[in-house]
Design a protein around this nucleic acid. Structure first.
Lengths: 203, 203
DNA sequence: AAAATAGTTAACCATTTGGTTAAAATGATT
DNA sequence: AATCATTTTAACCAAATGGTTAACTATTTT
């Protein structure tokens, strides 16, 4: 089992930055090489082509999305706790890696085929969450509704404000970066508060 | 006052398709010309450069976003009605023009500077909505909370599922296009139902 | 230490791309 | 009909881009 060489890691990190900033089409191999302080030929030596390099970056980014929420199920004692954990870990993730949401959204939209493979291969299974939510509704812990709808709503509330940050920052916060940032940070609590009425207390 | 020539409109429509499908960087002037069934030089004759052409397309797309919700305020008798109208007109808009959300999101993210100008120039003013929501809270018609938060939440619920459609369709609906489509259509009602607990009935 | 392998570089290449140009066609004005 | 402006076309161009090559260096293997 070979570990990734230093150069390889340096390339991947530089590529991640450039690809997430400019997208597949906007990224230039030369810029990636420059940011990694290496010769452009090294990119091809390690990754063969721009597409292959992009795929590595994209795959890594994509898999960062899901472990969080799946983990949240297993580690939670009840729905309340689950929601808290799920929301919290997403907000933390996106505060740390703000490029993730829009990068995934954009590139999946541009070439959705890439996704098919990743879903099957990666064992990513949102159905587990849908099942869990349905169970909780049946047990009377959660307001009854279409579980898929609830899942989509939670995800929307978690992801959109980060994906639309440049828009929100300028349109709703008049360009005040700090206000916008603290607003986003506070969503860890406020999304939960917003969803709280759905939880049925039975103690 | 000159009306746009036929050729100009044909170009704009072809450009819109290509730019929304492939983004600014991924779009090719030749492809736009081909789809418009004209010579590539015409693009430059009418729009000077790729950037200028893109700007025309982007600006038009951007301004489609806001009239809806602002109109909703003036035409609504109460908050309940406002929410219904706002949600409904957004869902309708995105069912009709599914490319809008991700196009705006992606391109604003790629070059946020473009936005600054459009906001000032276009008289787009989300603050009106924030004020309206705050008023309604003060009058006891709406559960009290940060009005910006509510606005962001409503927008999230309306836009995200469309922006993330390729993702949602494949991950949550196992690639079943029809199920996903009818799910999205139904959001006109379900988002409202979801938000209903926030409305305080006082009659 | 010699041989072989892996890593790195600069120069190069074919193709693509946005953009230009000069001439031809079309339409309006007198 | 002749002149003038507008619209359209085909051929062309310089720059940029992803990718290759062949030589050079460092590292490992024997």
């Amino acid at each position: 089992m070979e570990l990734k060489s230093d150069t390889e890691k340096t390339i991947l990190e530089a590529a991640r930055k450039v690809f997430t900033e400019k997208g597949l089409d906007g990224a230039r191999m030369q810029e990636i090489a420059d940011r990694a302080n290496i010769n452009k030929a090294m990119l091809h030596y390690y990754f063969r082509s721009k597409d292959k390099l992009f795929e590595s970056v994209f795959t890594a980014a994509f898999y960062e999305f899901w472990p969080e929420i799946t983990k949240s199920i297993n580690e939670s004692a009840n729905v309340e706790d689950f929601l808290k954990r799920a929301i919290s870990s997403y907000v933390d993730l996106f505060m740390d890696k703000p490029y993730l949401p829009i990068f995934i959204l954009s590139e999946v939209n541009r070439s959705p085929d890439r996704l098919e493979f990743l879903i099957r291969e990666g064992g990513v299974n949102p159905h587990l969450i849908v099942e869990y939510l349905k169970e909780q509704m049946d047990q009377g812990n959660l307001k009854s509704m279409n579980p898929k709808e609830l899942l989509v709503n939670v995800i929307s509330l978690c992801i959109f404000p980060f994906a639309g940050k440049p828009l929100i920052e300028r349109m709703i916060f008049q360009g005040d970066k700090d206000s916008c940032k603290s607003f986003l940070q506070q969503r860890k609590q406020s999304i939960y508060e917003f969803l709280k009425p759905l939880i049925i207390a039975n103690n």
